[in-house]
Structures are given as C-alpha cells and as structure tokens.
C-alpha cells in the first residue's frame, strides 16, 4: 500500500468510527478528491460531514476551531502546506491558545493537514516545508507523515491529544510504499519513533529525520555503508514537536530535514538532545537541511537547494572523519 492510500484509508476509518469528525478543504469532494487525492471517496460516503470550501484558508481553519469548540472533531486540508501561512492566525492565536487561555483546559480536536516539500517543480510558493514556523507554539503539536507508521494510528493519537495538531505530509511520500526498507537495513520499530538499522550491529551514528526525507537518508546510509564502512541508524519520529526521543548508545547525531536554513526543527531537536545527552556526545548534533533560499522551479536549480542523499552522505562522512 502506498502512503497516499494509507492516508486515505486512515481518513475513511476515522470518519466511519467517529461520527463527530468533519473534513474541510478546497476541492476535497468527489470526483476530484483533493489535489493529491487523499480525500477520495470521503464526500461520497459522508456527504454531510465533508465540506468542499471556498479558497479561504483562514476561515476554514476557524470553522474547524468552531467545530472543535462545540465538541466535534475536524480535519482541514490545506491544498498546499504553504497556504497554512494564511491560517496562521486562526491556528496560533485562536485554536492553540484556546486550549489554555481561558483558565481551564478546553479540548480542541482538530488537525490541519499540510502537503509540503519540493522535488516536483511546483516552485517557491508550492514547495516549502514550513514545519519550523510552527515549532514552539503552546498547545500546538506537530506531526509528520512517515512511511513507517500507519496514519490511522497517527490520526487517533492526534485527536486523542485534544489540542490542535498539524500533520505535515511530504508530497514525495504519496507514491511511496509503506514500510518498505531494502536490505541489509531493517525496520525495527514502528511506533511513535520508527527505527531503521542494521540488525545486531552497533552504529557509528544516529540520524534523526522526518518521514519526508527518510528515503534520502536511507540512500545515503547505503552508500556510506558500502563505500565507507560507516554504519548509521535512522530514527523517524512521528511527532516532531514536542520533541521526545530516546537515543541508542552513540556519540554522534545528525538531524536531517527538507526545511531551509535558519531556525530549523533540527535546531530544536539538537537543543533537546544536547540538554539530555551532552556528556556522552563527542560533538554537537549536526544539522543537515536545505539551503538558505527560496525553492526554484527549474529542476536543476531546485536540486541545488533541496537537501538530498548526496549532501547527507557528504556531511555525515566529513563530520565523522573530521
């Protein structure tokens, strides 16, 4: 099963089992089923609770917050995650704050789904990974779709939190198969933090990465192992923020993400790991991310900006051999 189908199945299951859940977004209704077809079939099965909306990201995020206030659950699809900037006020100043600013906890069951990432030539305003802009908002949890965790579990967990959540879905994952890892590496854990490693071997380093770049990291892990005899273990947390990670016994850690330089999610991960594990690390956590740039449209220019397997390989090797 591909990631897109897994997401679609998760939404079907969620709406089937929880009759309060509404889904809103632009062009989400059948036969179109959303720009990336993640909502396919939902409006046919649940016509009362699936609302195809005007191009109004601010308002539909507010509508989700209103449904949540009234006790319903709500899932909002941003057609492109870039457009979540238009929903920032409703999400940050209202939905997330409402959890605690009224003095007692107000449950807010809502999820903003954000297709993110480049590699498709959509250009500067349809290719970003905006995760970093949402890090550190009280009452707002961040998740990223991974090929190593069933999205039904992810949605159940997000709604269970009863606070607004953003789910970042890297668009390049949609056509990827779930749970697929090529030997000799093996997927060892599938829970909140998936682990991909070489069974029985002690790694030279750990690479922490969001689900969207997992395959790029795995490609680098393969060349590092085959060409350089460097062994990495990959950790893919389902929840990006708040950060919760248990490290295997290693003294070198890398964080890989597609977001551009400056104020990154990786910097937050590094801060958490430094605070907990400074004494056993032989150097600071190394951040690997895209360049400090807009994301160009032309394929060769886009490749130069976005983080890729080669950059991951090169940075890990240079850091370990320095």
């Amino acid at each position: 099963m591909r990631v897109a189908e897994n997401l679609n199945a998760a939404l079907h299951g969620l709406m089937e089992h929880d009759p309060t859940v509404h889904l809103l977004g632009e062009d989400v209704a059948d036969p179109y089923g959303g720009a990336f077809k993640i909502t396919r079939g939902l409006s046919t099965r649940f016509p009362e609770r699936v609302l195809t909306t005007p191009i109004s990201e601010n308002a539909i995020t507010g509508v989700a917050a209103g449904l949540a206030l009234a006790g319903d659950g709500a899932v909002v699809e941003m057609m492109f995650g870039d457009f979540a900037a238009l929903a920032f006020d409703q999400l940050v100043n209202f939905a997330a704050k409402s959890v605690s600013m009224y003095g007692s906890r107000v449950p807010m069951r809502m999820v903003l789904r954000c297709p993110v990432g480049g590699g498709r030539g959509y250009g500067p305003t349809h290719s970003q990974s905006l995760q970093k802009h949402f890090v550190g908002v009280p009452g707002l949890a961040l998740y990223e779709t991974s090929p190593f965790r069933d999205n039904a579990e992810v949605f159940a967990e997000m709604l269970q939190r009863a606070e607004p959540c953003v789910l970042f879905e890297d668009k390049v994952l949609y056509t990827r198969a779930m749970y697929e890892v090529e030997p000799p590496f093996a997927l060892r854990a599938q829970g909140a933090v998936a682990e991909v490693s070489l069974p029985g071997e002690r790694p030279d380093c750990v690479v922490v990465a969001g689900g969207g770049v997992a395959h790029r990291v795995l490609a680098a892990m393969r060349t590092l192992l085959v060409e350089e005899d460097v062994l990495c273990t990959l950790l893919v947390p389902s929840r990006l923020y708040p950060v919760e990670l248990e490290l295997p016994e290693v003294d070198r850690v890398f964080v890989v993400e597609e977001g551009t330089a400056g104020g990154t999610w990786g910097a937050e991960v590094a801060h958490v790991l430094h605070t907990r594990h400074w004494s056993r690390l032989s150097g600071p956590v190394t951040l690997i991310h895209s360049a400090d740039s807009v994301i160009p449209t032309a394929a060769h220019l886009e490749r130069d900006v976005l983080v890729g397997a080669e950059a991951v390989h090169r940075t890990i090797l240079e850091t370990l051999r320095a």
């Binding site: 509404h22 601010n58 308002a59 539909i60 995020t61 507010g62 509508v63 989700a64 917050a65 209103g66 449904l67 949540a68 206030l69 009234a70 006790g71 319903d72 709500a74 006020d89 409703q90 100043n93 209202f94 009224y102």
Partner: peptide, 19 residues
C-alpha cells in the same frame, strides 16, 4: 467566548453554527 484579535471570531462562529 471573547478573543482579542479583530475578525477572528467570525470564522469560529461559522464552525459553531455549522454544529
């Protein structure tokens, strides 16, 4: 319920009235 940001409550009220 009151909020301090102008215009923020109208979309929220749309969600509540939908319910």
């Amino acid at each position: 319920l009151s909020t301090g940001v102008q215009g923020e409550s109208l979309p929220v009220a749309c969600g509540v009235t939908l319910h």
